[in-house]
Design a protein around this nucleic acid. Structure first.
Lengths: 146, 146
DNA sequence: CAAGTGATTAGAATAATTACAAACTTTGTA
DNA sequence: TACAAAGTTTGTAATTATTCTAATCACTTG
């Protein structure tokens, strides 16, 4: 399931502007990378991939950018995996995430969870994350046909 | 929402036995701790709390025990929080988790997510975790009455 | 009892992330 | 254009959670 999302300069600038985040070169690069790669990359993946294009880029900047973008709800942290945080573009319909235990790939997943239904008295829910794990269709197929 | 669960020696022994996990002293202690404290403790909390009672206990043993128990589906990993894994007793009705962003407390939460509904073609889902974040009733109340 | 398997230990190693201070850039204003 | 303030970036050090390793210990079975 993929929601195509334009990562044109103007769209991104507008997005940052609306959230009051300064559009520095590095922030734009990080954001564009997360949007274009639809693989929910880790901070380290982002750093390694951008390092070629921006030789002076530092890891700390990638972390700073990701935090800023996540704080502004432009990106969303995906914590389906022990030890590392992955990032996903947040400006798209709500969806859950699925991780294949075999190949490790992370897929978007339609989600039918309704927050209000689960809301205990007096609690206020800001965000809901649904994480599923199992075997993706590629890997399940491979097992069958073996 | 609390499901009372007996942590009597016999119940635990039986549980381990059924899963083919040897009931070593440390494993029992770790398991009992997670069941009795209903706070979804971290490995480190468990280690620190048990260290008094078992002076020779090592961190690695706590990690080993937790992994073994989670592999056997006796415990469940709760990864609602960046950087640390928490543990929850798995022998209870399915439920989600809620983390209060203010006080950090983690609550169990009734959950109305149906796996099959979200299942894309050819995928097999083994487990689903639902994590919500927001403001718990204690903390929300405090804000209002300020 | 001896062998073998699994559990435990302490400490070293690793991986991801955060903290921090210094250098640099950008912005708004004079 | 010059300036100060605010914001960004950098490199490095520190921290945190976790895993690895290799040696030792305990328990069961023949």
């Amino acid at each position: 399931m993929t929601y195509t999302q334009p990562s044109t300069p103007n769209y991104l600038l507008d997005l940052l502007h609306k959230s009051g985040v300064r559009p520095s070169v590095h922030r734009l690069a990080v954001l564009r990378y997360v949007i274009d790669k639809k693989t929910h990359p880790t901070a380290d993946e982002i750093f390694s991939s951008l390092a070629a294009e921006f030789p002076s880029l530092s890891r700390a900047t990638v972390y700073n950018s990701l935090h800023k973008l996540a704080d502004s709800s432009i990106l969303r942290e995906v914590e389906i995996e022990n030890g590392t945080t992955r990032y996903d573009f947040a400006q798209q319909p709500p969806h859950g995430h699925f991780k294949c235990r075999r190949c490790g790939k992370i897929y978007d997943m339609p989600m039918s969870y309704r927050a209000d239904e689960a809301l205990p008295d007096g609690f206020r829910i800001d965000s809901i994350d649904v994480y599923a794990k199992g075997c993706c269709s590629d890997c399940c197929d491979n097992i069958k046909t073996k």
